[in-house]
């Protein structure tokens, strides 16, 4: 096994351990902190895959934004004297069935697809052979040229959400 593979499996194990922690724990704050492990693991996997900007964005948005907001929400809404904020499990059988079905779907799809022949994979492989540099410049230029419309629409959407949140919070 090469060093890269060992690193990959180590971080994959971290990601899965975090995900299992979220599902299995009864304490909702433990679940939030397990989510931190998963996010960090996924960011590390992005780095292994050569997507440096994506990895940092992953931590910035999911850890710095989403996770902090979630923990904040939990802390503000529950009494601090309740030591355990329970998150009981409901609909176990239906949930397990849905999970297994989704897993089966993805599993067969991945097995059936021959990734090495997909056009965009081969293209990316050729690209990565010629350019071992960072992805930032490419992403930046593409965002400002070919993908400027979706980029701006996303910006407007976020702006609307921000104004809406301020309006709701500011209403007496």
């Amino acid at each position: 096994m090469s060093v890269t593979e060992i690193i990959f499996y180590a971080f994959a194990a971290l990601t899965i351990a975090g995900a299992l922690g979220i599902v299995l724990t009864k304490n909702i704050l433990y679940a939030a902190f397990s989510l931190l492990l998963t996010f960090l693991g996924v960011a590390a996997l992005y780095v292994v895959a050569g997507a440096d900007l994506l990895a940092v964005v992953q931590i910035m948005i999911y850890v710095g934004g989403v996770l902090v907001l979630m923990i904040f929400g939990v802390m503000l809404t529950s009494k601090t004297t309740d030591k355990y904020l329970p998150s009981p499990s409901h609909n176990r059988i239906a949930g397990a069935l849905a999970g297994l079905a989704l897993f089966g779907l993805f599993f067969t799809a991945i097995l059936k697809a021959s990734f090495s022949t997909l056009p965009w994979i081969t293209q990316a492989e050729q690209h990565s052979r010629t350019v071992s540099e960072s992805t930032i410049a490419g992403i930046g230029i593409n965002l400002m040229t070919d993908f400027v419309l979706p980029f701006e629409i996303a910006g407007i959407l976020l702006m609307v959400a921000l104004i809406g949140a301020a309006y709701i919070a500011g209403r007496k």
Binding site: V56, M60, G64, V68, M75, I136
Partner: peptide, 30 residues
């Protein structure tokens, strides 16, 4: 010498916030 440099720096110190929240909450003290 990572290309993401300063963006990484600003990002990684947000983990500090999670640490603060854990410290504050787990102390069980108002």
């Amino acid at each position: 010498g990572a290309n993401v440099g300063v963006f990484y720096l600003l990002t990684i110190i947000t983990l500090d916030i999670i640490g603060l929240l854990i410290a504050g909450w787990s102390s069980n003290n108002k």
